[in-house]
Nucleic acid binder design. Structure first.
Length: 276
DNA sequence: CTTGTGTCCTGTAGGC
DNA sequence: TGCCTACAGGACACAA
């Protein structure tokens, strides 16, 4: 599940090798990987284009082309982007972009949930509706306690659900929401509107910190997840996870048994002593 | 508008 | 050994 730190790591690693490169060929192994427009149109329009820049918005990776269109990648749960020599084929490769340098940008996605889109500016609302409704990223200066308080105010749903809502906390997924809640001392099951001002302040800070640490450790690579850097190496933040996927283990801070609960069809782990 | 539930997808782990 | 089921979860559709 590449979240903000993982996608940002991928963006930073790809940038020096992609910017300025020309795409000399595009090959699609699984047509369903192309979310928009058609395979045929995407191949025709991207072939021959030069890459002018890389950006990221939430969990989306944006590859800018010299005709002002953008290739947008979303890796969902198990997608990975590799940059390899053209002679190599990563496992589960679904689409490849061959570059003039002799390298290949390859999207691997075993579960076929990830997508690649080609859009011009005016097409965003229709093609990527979610992208136009995104809230602030916790690493932006505008992500303040006041912002978070306003978004949680009066909400009856569980706070964990709202941390995963991209309209509120853009770029946050299951790993970093569990970790931020632990650091803030707030249980994931709490009604969002019941949080005190102090708890919201701690939560805003924890989200900012945990995402920044995730970036500095090049993301989180764990078993049965496919996240790796474009050269196939692993991130390092998994060493610092305190509660995520650790239900049944002892809390490193207080020794209590970490609990695992299901919230909205996904699991969440927390320490019943450290988190109130 | 808010809230909760189901669906997509397929590799992996665990039970028997 | 091999079959079967549950599970992982980001985004979105849909119902109430």
């Amino acid at each position: 599940m590449p979240e903000l730190p993982e996608v940002e790591t991928i963006r930073r690693r790809l940038e020096p090798d992609l910017v300025g490169q020309r795409v000399v060929a595009v090959r699609v192994n699984r047509p369903e990987i192309v979310g928009y427009p058609s395979v045929r149109t995407l191949v025709r329009q991207v072939t021959g284009r030069r890459i002018t820049g890389l950006a990221r918005r939430g969990k989306y990776l944006i590859v800018r082309l010299d005709d002002h269109q953008e290739l947008i990648f979303h890796l969902r749960l198990s997608g990975a982007l590799y940059l390899v020599n053209n002679s190599k084929t990563p496992p589960y490769e679904r689409i490849q972009f061959r570059l003039a340098s002799g390298n290949r940008l390859s999207l691997a996605e075993p579960r076929m949930l990830g997508r690649v889109y080609l859009v011009g500016g005016h097409e965003y609302p229709a093609v990527l509706a979610g992208m136009t409704k995104m809230g602030r990223e916790p690493i932006e200066p505008g992500f303040t306690a006041s912002y978070l308080a306003a978004r949680l105010h009066g909400r009856k749903t569980k706070v964990k659900t709202l941390l995963l809502d991209q309209r509120i906390c853009c770029g946050v997924g299951n790993i970093y929401s569990d970790e931020a809640l632990f650091r803030a001392g707030v249980r994931p099951t709490r009604r969002a509107g019941s949080l005190t001002r102090a708890e919201i302040g701690r939560l805003a800070r924890a989200l900012r910190q945990v995402l920044k640490e995730g970036i500095s450790w090049c993301g989180t690579t764990i078993a049965d997840r496919r996240y790796v850097l474009p050269d196939g190496t692993s991130g390092g933040f998994q060493k610092y996870l305190r509660v995520f996927r650790r239900g049944g283990e002892r809390c490193g801070r207080c020794g209590a048994t970490i609990q695992r609960v299901r919230i909205g069809n996904r699991s969440s782990c927390y320490c019943p002593v450290c988190q109130k």
